[in-house]
């Protein structure tokens, strides 16, 4: 009897083990496509559903995390990629992946409908854009009033002593939004001026957050009255009833593109191409437009609720290659200067 129990146990263990292994390799009738993304979690379902209206035979398996984490994950898996395709990651990150030789160049159908800012300029582009994602400042009017703060109008305003300890922004080391802020300041104010600006701003920063949406959410909750974040997040929070105002600093705002690319070496190239083709269709772009004011498809963008009207005109001319190739240096410099915030000063 003892042997029998042990045998049964063995079988059970094997079954569990196999089912766990099998779980990862399970392939049903439909093609499973592993899609890495940094798109806001609340939109993922809608994206997949809309896509499946046209292509019910492709099953999207999302890997969603913040920009920094998805990028890190992709780089970590460089030699052993787990993703088939990236749909919705910062263009700066995709440039990084491209330079590692991780992207499969592909020219999707209908590329001519996109604004040429919105795709890789190689003959066969390695990535195509979806929408632009624009920095903005979230300002909590209730807390502002309570603390006698006037709404800031420009980036330079944020360095005023009045705002000391009332500003919060993302850490560029972990947040894509944080990095686009920093790289936009360096592009707008020049290398020297940019760092000088950040030195001044640093004095007013309460702390640096890991994620890019957190500053706006904290502003919405009144935890810190002013959050440097991005416009879309502000609009969402405002929609949810938070007493915030979305401010577009007058010097101009940094932005990054959400873009898509096929990961080189995927075994599901056909399905990946199908998704790439679909991702630049009018239907897809209209879907992006529900949250993002700027989309790649020429001439269809409609204004988004709660978005400040000046936002589009204030978008700076962004040099993605500068951002990608100087990323390491900028982050190291930033860390050297500011990553010890709130250290006890001896």
């Amino acid at each position: 009897m003892g042997i029998k129990i042990l045998k049964n146990l063995n079988i059970a263990v094997c079954a569990v083990f196999l089912s766990m292994v099998g779980f990862s390799n399970f392939a049903g009738a439909a093609t499973d496509l592993t899609v890495y993304t940094a798109v806001e979690a609340e939109d993922l379902k809608k994206y997949a559903e809309t896509f499946n209206q046209d292509h019910p035979d492709i099953n999207i398996k999302w890997v969603r995390d913040s920009t920094g984490i998805v990028t890190a994950k992709l780089l970590a898996e460089k030699n052993n990629p787990q993703a088939d395709i990236v749909w919705g990651l910062a263009a700066t990150s995709l440039l990084l992946l491209k330079s590692e030789g991780m992207l499969e160049p592909y020219k999707p159908k209908g590329l001519e409908n996109l604004d040429d800012k919105f795709y890789d300029q190689d003959p066969t582009p390695s990535w195509v854009g979806m929408d632009a994602w624009v920095a903005a400042v979230c300002f909590n009017t209730v807390e502002g009033k309570a603390k006698n703060l006037t709404a800031p109008g420009s980036w330079k305003d944020l360095t005023k002593p009045m705002y000391k300890g009332h500003v919060i922004m993302p850490n560029p080391n972990s947040s894509g939004t944080g990095f686009l802020d920093v790289s936009s300041w360096l592009q707008m104010f020049g290398e020297k001026g940019g760092w000088e600006y950040m030195d001044a701003l640093h004095n007013n920063i309460a702390r640096y957050t890991h994620s890019g949406s957190k500053p706006c959410k904290l502003a919405a909750a009144g935890e810190i009255p002013i959050g440097v974040s991005f416009a879309f997040r502000g609009a969402r929070s405002k929609e949810a009833g938070a007493p915030i105002e979305i401010i577009v600093p007058q010097e101009g705002v940094g932005w990054d593109m959400e873009a898509s690319a096929i990961i080189a070496g995927t075994e599901k190239l056909e399905a990946a191409k199908t998704l790439m083709d679909w991702s630049i269709t009018r239907k897809a772009n209209e879907m992006y437009n529900s949250a993002y004011a700027v989309v790649g498809y020429k001439g269809i963008a409609k204004p988004v609720k709660h978005f400040p009207p000046t936002l589009l005109s204030k978008m700076i001319k962004n040099d993605f290659a500068f951002a990608a190739n100087n990323r390491k240096r900028i982050l190291a410099e930033w860390q050297k200067r500011y990553d010890s915030k709130s250290e006890p000063k001896n």
Binding site: A72, A76, S174, R207, L331, D339, S340
Partner: peptide, 21 residues
């Protein structure tokens, strides 16, 4: 922790934030 850095968080920042494995 705010900006108060500790070793365990540094590992996370190095790996996730800076991809410096």
């Amino acid at each position: 922790g705010g900006q108060y850095n500790m070793l365990a968080v540094d590992i996370y920042k190095q790996v996730i934030g800076q991809q410096n494995f």
